[in-house]
Nucleic acid binder design. Sequence first.
DNA 1: CTCCTTTACATACAGCATGTTTGTAACTTG
DNA 2: CAAGTTACAAACATGCTGTATGTAAAGGAG
Lengths: 192, 192
Amino acid sequence: MPRASAADAAETARRVLETATAHFAEHGYAAASIDEIAHAAGVTRGAVYHHYDSKPRLFAAVAAAQQHQIAEAIIAATADSSDDTALRDGSHAFLDAITHGVASRILLIDGPAALGWEQWRRLDAEGPEQELRTGLREAGIAPALVDPLASALSGAMNELALWLAARPDDAAARRHAHRALDTLLDAVTPQP
Amino acid sequence: MPRASAADAAETARRVLETATAHFAEHGYAAASIDEIAHAAGVTRGAVYHHYDSKPRLFAAVAAAQQHQIAEAIIAATADSSDDTALRDGSHAFLDAITHGVASRILLIDGPAALGWEQWRRLDAEGPEQELRTGLREAGIAPALVDPLASALSGAMNELALWLAARPDDAAARRHAHRALDTLLDAVTPQP
DNA sequence: CTCCTTTACATACAGCATGTTTGTAACTTG
DNA sequence: CAAGTTACAAACATGCTGTATGTAAAGGAG
């Protein structure tokens, strides 16, 4: 007994996604149950499986949405950056964006395990890491080192984000995290 | 019907641990089944649950064993390093050690999700990251930046390890990974 | 306007995995 | 040698995913 027209269906899917985001963030991927997500969203598991084929797919949708938000924040922050400062501006924007939402910490932790490393890697290779690589190239890094350095810096920022997420509302910690990031970026960019 | 005396019991536990390591490495934490691990080790699930209370505990034991091996490699590599070179020597040893075993990639991926971030953090805060922090302090890093920089560098090396693990038997990639690591270390150590 | 297909769910079911409980035989200790 | 503890085995309970089936409303075709 569908109460939903095509427009309402999209609303249902959106509500499920939102609820799933909260549950994955609070309980982690493994402990989050589709049954509970469905119940909290006011539908049955049938509806969830109708819109998202499987639990990994649902998680992938949640993760993609989070990445989209972060990517937009980076784009906004680097809109009026020069080529010289884009990498630095984008990196700081990334750190702020990923530590802002509640879900980010869980996404960084559960992402690889839930989706498998391959798929996870593809997901953020299309995302912020791509901009990282172009930033490194523009900074004059040797081509052979661009890939490993991008991975390394990405890992550094992710771990920095987790470190920061464990210290919420700690302004000093946030300052120190950004200074630590700057220290690492000094190694790969023409220094100001 | 126990066939094992106290000595054989330790052997059983060891065999289970070894088998579990292989299964976690091959299938990942979630997809690895205790039933299959027990069967492959030649015991029943009862034996596994007798020696290791739960699946997370079993995984924790596996992870701890891996970390122990890595820590020993680092200690061996920095045994005759000066204070100035200990950080660099230890970091390169870490990268080699963690990419050597088959299990490392899965451990880096499944660790946080399986044990929860808190416990995971404690596990490797007691491990290599502690030495990282002392290395950073000896390198003259500002005290407030030691913690976030240690996290960042740890994340960088882990991601570098995953990047390398995806390119096995690629000598050039290994060289480039080590050069990328050196580049980052240049930012925090007195340069050679 | 009617029919017919497709959409958007709800419900029931099957299968597997964890963890717990119960049972039991060997080993150890007094 | 007797009694308690150890080291398992086997059966059971529970929960979760995914699938199969049912169904009412939307929307287009004629």
